[in-house]
């Protein structure tokens, strides 16, 4: 067996275990980028070069959308405490 498929399969398995085990969501996105590296290597090792080029172009777009969601979630979680402390005063 050649080196590229072997290491790609190892990288896919380690990335999948890492996505499950880590608890912080930035760490989850980093391990997802690690899994994508193995996936593109596995596609390339079967000589599907056009599929590999397209999927490696589309990979950062998915990562950027996930990161925008994470940033919006952090901003929302920080600003929500003020509203919840002011609402009882307004209701009274």
């Amino acid at each position: 067996m050649d080196v590229l498929p072997l290491i790609s399969i190892l990288s896919c398995i380690l990335g999948g275990i890492g996505v499950i085990l880590h608890t912080d969501y930035i760490n989850k996105i980093i391990m997802f980028a690690f899994l994508e590296a193995g996936l593109i290597g596995l596609i390339t090792s079967f000589y599907y070069l056009d599929v590999s080029i397209i999927s490696s172009i589309l990979e950062p777009i998915g990562t950027v959308i996930l990161l925008l969601g994470a940033l919006k979630y952090a901003h929302l979680k920080r600003t929500k405490k003020k509203y919840s402390s002011e609402v009882p005063i307004l209701a009274r």
Binding site: A33, S56, E59, P60, V64
Partner: peptide
């Protein structure tokens, strides 16, 4: 194969740039 490697490398660099910025 060289073209595939270049496209993969630049795309993954953009991805890690976005993670560091976040």
């Amino acid at each position: 194969g060289a073209l595939t490697a270049v496209v993969y490398f630049i795309s993954s660099t953009i991805s890690s740039n976005a993670i560091a910025h976040t």
